[in-house]
Amino acid sequence: MNDMTRVERTVDSKAIKIAANDVQVHYGDTHAIKDVNVEIEDKTVTAFIGPSGCGKSTFLRCLNRMNDTIDICRVTGDILLDGEDIYDKRVDPVQLRAKVGMVFQKPNPFPKSIYDNVAYGPRIHGLAKNKAELDELVEKSLRRGAIWDEVKDRLDAPGTGLSGGQQQRLCIARAVATEPEVLLMDEPCSALDPIATAQVEELIDDLRKRYSVVIVTHSMQQAARVSQKTAFFHLGNLVEFGETGQIFTNPEDPRTESYITGRIG
């Protein structure tokens, strides 16, 4: 299986942003991720698909060490970001997470104003020297989050007052504001209605110009629509990884095929 993913990898031409080698994740006694090897490219949308509980979200959370917040979670193996092991002792997860931003399943704006939501990251990381710079940064991020036009007149309104789709785009803007290099998205559309989903998907496609985007989704259609690369997880294993088109039209592994055609999952 690993051989197959290696074969697929030769197809790509862009720089490797994140490389994972032999990653294992244990939750207490549960072996949640088994021996995963994957290389994620820059300026590409990579989709993780698979049935629920297959470990795709767990693996995603390893990429910016969000699993550190869970006491019983143990990660072994290497995950290299630009060639640097993010699980190295010298790495401060705080600095790592500034480089690898994350958007969550449920929109989770802070109970603050829209402005303060976006300014939160730049403030804690000290990205703006003064108020004018911060204003500019907030506007730029909100534009990148494709929500500027909707909120520019009410930046002081609480972020929790927006609609679900707007909240999620606000969260994306918030993640973008820290100027990350990688954006991790954990089922970002699962709590949204179809119209809001379409807007976010369009936004993801746009984000690809600047960032390496990794998206976990339970919707194969969504993966097909937004991603260039797709990884299929099953029972903690990375079954297949390759060009999205190929995975969906001509999967090599029978399990992938079963999942795509709806026989498992």
Binding site: R97, F104, N108, T178
Partner: peptide, 8 residues
């Protein structure tokens, strides 16, 4: 999670 994910 939202806050930690931003590197706080």
């Amino acid at each position: 999670d939202g806050s930690l994910g931003l590197g706080a």
